[in-house]
């Protein structure tokens, strides 16, 4: 009998505490599957952020540490100095990475750190209860923009992949969406490429996942996926921003 599916050894066999319809679980599994397939589980070290995915170390079957809010890329930089032969990654949400941690992410890219950052963009603060993130859309209602985000008060949503692609030390930058089976397959390829770039010491690698937050968006899981397609992708276009030229 052929084995059609096997649960990855990269994940602990527990159910996650993430909300129904949240795509953190998919992103976790893709990263862990990729590490597993590459034979890197034993030499991977991860940094969990502040945010919903602070608990990612409960599920990811690799050595991990927690981070202060937004500092994961600096922490990963320190880890990589001690273990330059290991695979070091951060897993961060948009409040963590695009707001309080902008300095750390830009400068990790700037130094060309041989680390990989997995960035979960769901256009909102999840763990603290649905406040506006820098990635929140114009008109999007959150607990700190009850009438919807306005450009006048809050500026326009921040596009992190585009920004990081302009930084010299960034070797690979790609945005993917966890919105469909083909989107998930493309995301997996991007994860594998990013890890490969790190392993070849080409520079900083970055994968942005357009992700869902049904709870704080006030949508059901299916409608949330639909919102990724109709609203997020037009503003946050998918594709490679650096590292696959030509």
């Amino acid at each position: 009998m052929n084995t059609l599916f096997e649960f990855t050894k990269g994940m602990k066999p527990d159910s996650t505490s993430y909300c129904p319809g949240c795509t953190h679980g998919i992103a976790h599994r893709l990263i862990m599957e990729a590490l597993c397939e590459r034979g890197d589980l034993g030499r991977a070290i991860g940094v969990a952020p502040i945010g919903c995915s602070i608990v990612s170390h409960n599920y990811m079957n690799v050595d991990m540490c927690e981070s202060t809010h937004g500092r994961a890329p600096a922490i990963a930089s320190g880890i990589k100095r001690v273990h330059p032969g290991n695979i070091v990654f951060t897993y961060q949400g948009d409040g963590d990475l695009a707001s309080i941690g902008t300095g750390e992410i830009i400068h990790a890219a700037h130094r060309g750190e041989h680390i990989t950052t997995f960035f979960i963009n769901n256009a909102i603060y999840g763990m603290t209860g649905g406040q506006m993130a820098p990635t929140t859309f114009i008109g999007q209602k959150t607990t700190t923009t009850a009438e919807g985000r306005t450009e006048k008060a809050n500026g326009k949503p921040l596009r992190m992949s585009e920004m990081i692609a302009t930084v010299g030390g960034a070797a690979y930058v790609e945005r993917v969406a966890l919105n469909s089976p083909s989107g998930v397959r493309k995301a997996k390829k991007a994860v594998l490429r990013a890890l490969d770039v790190q392993d070849r010491k080409e520079g900083f690698s970055f994968v942005e996942f357009l992700s869902t937050c049904p709870t704080n968006w006030g949508l059901d899981p299916v409608a949330s996926i639909e919102w990724v397609n109709t609203d997020m992708i037009p503003y946050y276009p998918l594709g490679n921003f650096k590292g696959m030229e030509g």
Binding site: I45, V82, H83, E104
Partner: peptide, 21 residues
Amino acid sequence: VQAESELAAVSMAYGAAAAGG
């Protein structure tokens, strides 16, 4: 490493120390 700020410096230090250095 010349860090981008003292916040980053102490965070890098945490990473390196947690890694055993």
